Simulated scan of single mutants.
Amino acid sequence: MSRTFLKMNGLGNDFVVIETASQSFEPTPEDIRAIAKRGDGGIGCDQVIAIDPRSEGASAYVRFWNADGEVAGACGNGTRCVAWLLMQSAGKNGVAFDTVAGRLSGQMAGDKRVTVDMGPPGLDWTQIPLAEEMDTVGIELQVGPIDAPLVHTPGCVSMGNPHVVFFVDAPVTDAFAKGTGSLVEHHPLFPQGVNVGFAHVAARDHINLKVWERGAGLTAACGTGACAAQVAAVRRGLTDRVATVEFESGSLVIEWREADGHVIMTGPVTMDYAGKLPEKVAA
């Protein structure tokens, strides 16, 4: 029997979502890569998401995979899509669900607009994780010549997945993000790899951001990357607690809440279409 999926996106960051209430889904890394491949028989996506109807005290347990087949701890834009689906099916305006990174919750914030509580950020070097002890407000890392680095001293934040955020004087080009991001993603300082953000603080309530995602490459938008950039900026005193984080494809509103330290993300979700998984990964 063919297995079905939903194709969704958040600001162009796109996902293949499989609901497992009536169909099993235990993919190999090869299966994930086949699904995520753009063209040549693949569906094409940045991440694959499975929604499992088994989680005590929550609506579901949610699994994420990057396009390279590796398990991902969290995905901000994908989390909004999942929350919207669960709220639609339950006829509710709020929902909670579990992930390997912990319990997350979502609330309706308008027509196909969702607010998600991403929980508190991980800020200790062991939570990123880093290969050695460093102050994650600004770690000892630079790209380029020693006396004239292209980028340097980034902040580090875990949003259930590892992020490094370089602050730049102007928005960077795609070519720069690809070249630099691909170098930093597998740097020995990051034993689990890292998502690489390039943040330009345009105002105390506005960040322009481009993200090279671990296992996915340059993506249209990255929800956890937006959260990480805002947290890193607040820690340096560059932004206020609430800021708009803008990608070329659109923007998210991120609040690092002072009361409980949780990161709150609000943004749109889009349902693209429904389809059937390729038979080679549906057997």
Rank of each mutant, 00 (worst) to 15 (best):
R113T: 11
A34W: 02
M265A: 10
V71Y: 00
V116T: 14
L218K: 11
I32P: 05
K178E: 15
V211D: 03
K112G: 00
P188C: 11
T20W: 03
S22Y: 07
M87I: 05
A96V: 02
D260C: 07
L130T: 11
L104K: 11
V100G: 15
H152W: 10
V281L: 05
A72L: 12
I51K: 04
G250P: 02
H186T: 14
L11Y: 07
V242K: 14
G78K: 09
Q23G: 07
F166K: 04
Q230T: 14
D31T: 03
V164N: 05
A83V: 08
W125A: 11
L252E: 02
I35D: 11
G94D: 15
V194E: 05
A177W: 04
M108Q: 12
S59T: 10
T20C: 15
L218F: 06
A233V: 01
A34D: 04
S59L: 04
P129L: 10
R103N: 01
P268R: 08
G215D: 01
E213R: 05
P162W: 12
S2R: 08
G102Y: 12
Q230A: 15
R33F: 02
P149T: 05
I146P: 11
A74Y: 08
A83H: 08
A226E: 04
I128T: 09
V269L: 06
D117M: 06
E133R: 15
R3I: 06
F176K: 04
H187Q: 07
P121V: 09
P171M: 01
A58I: 00
R33M: 12
S105H: 05
D98K: 15
T136P: 07
P120N: 12
K210S: 13
G44P: 04
V245D: 00
G138E: 13
W65L: 03
G181N: 10
G223S: 08
A36D: 11
R63E: 08
D169S: 14
P121G: 10
H206T: 01
A274C: 08
R80G: 08
A170Q: 14
T180Y: 02
G223N: 01
P268V: 14
P278V: 02
I49D: 05
A175R: 13
F176E: 12
M134W: 08
A216Q: 08
I43V: 14
L123T: 14
T20E: 15
A96Q: 14
N208W: 00
L104C: 08
T79L: 10
A228G: 06
V245P: 03
A203F: 00
L150H: 04
G217L: 03
T270H: 13
A83L: 07
F5Q: 06
Y61A: 11
L85P: 00
F97Q: 04
A74T: 13
T180N: 07
G237P: 03
I128D: 04
A72V: 10
Q23M: 04
F167H: 02
